[in-house]
Design a protein around this nucleic acid. Structure first.
Lengths: 152, 152
DNA sequence: TATTGTTATACTCTATAACTATA
DNA sequence: TATAGTTATAGAGTATAACAATA
């Protein structure tokens, strides 16, 4: 028990095996590796895709609100939005009501990129979750949502 | 539906909400924040604790095997082992059978640190998983293990 | 005073390539 | 020739502090 693959052997990882946080970390790692493979050749990192998804669902949204929705610090949003602008995926127009803020929208190119990337991600998720029944997937999502909500 | 907290409002995050990878990311983020709080004032980052757990379970193990067990690259193990050595938590002795390798063991201080940190981590996990039944926690662990195992 | 976007900075985790000394 | 440990380096994510312009 409490083993991890290593060559052909298995190594006891000790108390770590009883910790949910460890398995969460490893699952995240596996997901990230396969995500990177899924979007290889495109500039769509996880953060960029997330931002685009929120903008698509809320045309004209400000970048501060996008950041809050995704748990991304204001300071870290800047480079993401700049990059999406340079890629021609997002338009940034001055807000008519608040001269400090910008209204973000996806360009046509951005909408196409979002759709294409989503298809790649759906394939990727199917690979990662192939062993899970639809019920198990829903249960997993609900559980992860409950965990993420623990942020007093 | 597909909302995320933001001030007092909720913002539609779009297609992102249907992706398990997104929720995995957010759950990991919440776990990491609370982990950091749990071990504040100690040097026990997640990686260091993991390495110590494997060494404790396998006294005399080499650092390459520890890395393989945890999915940590050889190159990235070096700084971890160096740091644990400087903290006086891990002993590194030359292997009698392979002059390239070192045998790793926890010092007494290391064993105490492992035990103390484990207590903090158990409290932290209890906080994060309070809403989940024992059955739900077991199911979560099994699911995460299955996902992490998808690494052809 | 508070907020939006910004710059600068730093820490952690992860990844690859190339070296050395051994095997 | 392959392996253990190492060095150097780079990308990505995340965190804080401080500033200018605006509210």
């Amino acid at each position: 028990m409490a083993m991890a693959e290593s060559d052909g052997e298995r190594v006891d990882i000790g108390v770590l095996d009883g910790l949910v946080g460890y398995h969460l970390r490893r699952a995240m790692g596996a997901f990230s590796v396969d995500y990177a493979r899924a979007v290889a050749g495109t500039p769509m990192r996880q953060g960029l895709f997330g931002v685009m998804s929120v903008i698509a669902a809320n045309p004209g949204i400000s970048q501060g609100i996008v950041g809050k929705a995704l748990g991304i610090q204001r300071a870290n949003m800047v480079a993401l939005i700049t990059e999406l602008g340079e890629l021609g995926l997002v338009d940034r127009e001055p807000s008519a009501t608040d001269r400090r803020a910008f209204n973000l929208t996806l360009t046509d190119k951005g909408m196409t990129m979002l759709k294409d990337t989503l298809a790649r991600i759906r394939d990727h998720e199917e690979r990662m979750l192939a062993a899970l029944s639809p019920a198990a997937r829903q249960s997993l999502t609900a559980t992860l949502r409950a965990i993420a909500a623990v942020e007093e």
